[in-house]
Write a protein that binds this DNA or RNA. Sequence first.
DNA 1: ACCTATCGTTTACAGTTGTAAACTCAGTTT
DNA 2: AAACTGAGTTTACAACTGTAAACGATAGGT
Lengths: 146, 146
Amino acid sequence: MPTTELTATITDAEWRVMRIVWTLGQADSHTIIDLLVRQHDWKPATIKTLIGRLVKKGALGTTKDGRQYIYHPLVAEQAAMDTALTTELSQMCAMCRGKSFVHAIDETELSQDDIQTLISHLQKKLTTAPTAVSCDCLPADYEGSC
Amino acid sequence: MPTTELTATITDAEWRVMRIVWTLGQADSHTIIDLLVRQHDWKPATIKTLIGRLVKKGALGTTKDGRQYIYHPLVAEQAAMDTALTTELSQMCAMCRGKSFVHAIDETELSQDDIQTLISHLQKKLTTAPTAVSCDCLPADYEGSC
DNA sequence: ACCTATCGTTTACAGTTGTAAACTCAGTTT
DNA sequence: AAACTGAGTTTACAACTGTAAACGATAGGT
């Protein structure tokens, strides 16, 4: 059960590797390489490098299995996704985040259950929501701060 | 009115510069540097570099004003945010995106208006939503594909 | 007309990322 | 036992990023 808190970030290319291992639960390098060679134009050597980096940064753990390793995630997928998304959002203007959510939700396929969960969370949130969220792009004390 | 479609991406550090210019509408380098030196521990030279890179990659435009330049955005803030967010999402497992939205929305301060817009978009979306969204982390033809 | 304060440009440099070949070592095959 | 094969490790290398100093030109003051 992966729950480690990661210091280093998982890069875009590494993310592809993690998705394989997350989905399979665990996998040997042959499996990972085989699947990724089919999805991308990557050479096996490239994937080996990515696996190595993920092990080094603590995102993947290993178990010896005879001559080779079985890799398994040391971070939970949902947690990694949540962190990535909120990190991305945190660097954007607070005032504009709502509109970006609208755009993202319009563009994303969501299940009925997810939509219902979102609606109920939003309805609850509405009861304590501010009338407006102000822009936080300038220092608080700036004269014309939005 | 900025509407250019950007090929290059805006990096994290550059994003800070853009937010200043987006918010002010336009600004000379003195203003940008002044504000960012206060927000971060950056040296003026660092900010000059970032401005230069943003101009080169077409995110900022310039107008000569005597000896100096006035910088203005060539890309719209909301569009840049929307792109950044959907790009981030597109690299994550389709099945898990809904849960990440829930988490992100829980963590983000939203205005009443934004929440209401989100709810109404979601309600509309619900009418055509699938029962479930399946994992897209493995090649479609993979034996145990989720 | 000369000096100086700027503003923008050039150069710098280490760390990260994408991409991949080369190498090493331990089992497996003949 | 010698050769081979495949897994993991090392090395490579260019582009991109974060961070910043140095430099060159030019508008303004004296």
